[in-house]
Amino acid sequence: MAVDDSAGGEGLLRAPLVIEYPFNRTTGPVVGAFVTALRDRRVLGIRGADGRVVCPPVEYDPQTGAPLDEMVEVGTSGTITSWSWVSQVREGQPLQTPHALALIQLDGADTAMLHVVDAPGPESVSTGARVRIRWSDEPTGAITDIACFELDGGAS
């Protein structure tokens, strides 16, 4: 039978396809301590070889590769060091309303972590703005125990 493509895409099949990897990973001693502390609404960083505090903590020094072992508690408030506005929210993102995606340097830390900031609009967000953690109501020992950050002063 001759193939007939003259109808083009008419009648073309189409279906949702989800490719999902349900990784079950071990946390290791450092990330394990970090997420365990989040469950208790505390944030831990780790002291690097040069004395700087890396948060979220890493197992090996970013510069030298040496194993790190001195965890330190940092604050639950911090400062936005960089950000962009997410106007079109996609499924699975931490917030389902338009929000900022920001690098946040927590008080006592020397590096920034990526998280979302719940804010009414891009005009209310700025580099240098103070933010604080809004904790999840049901902590499970995961990064999502930080529901989001909110602007200090309660703008949101």
Partner: peptide
């Protein structure tokens, strides 16, 4: 202490197999 986590990574497509 937390020792393990299920960390799903998923990609959602609208797939068409072609003619």
């Amino acid at each position: 202490p937390v020792r393990r986590q299920v960390v799903p990574a998923s990609m959602r497509y609208d797939y068409t197999p072609g003619l």
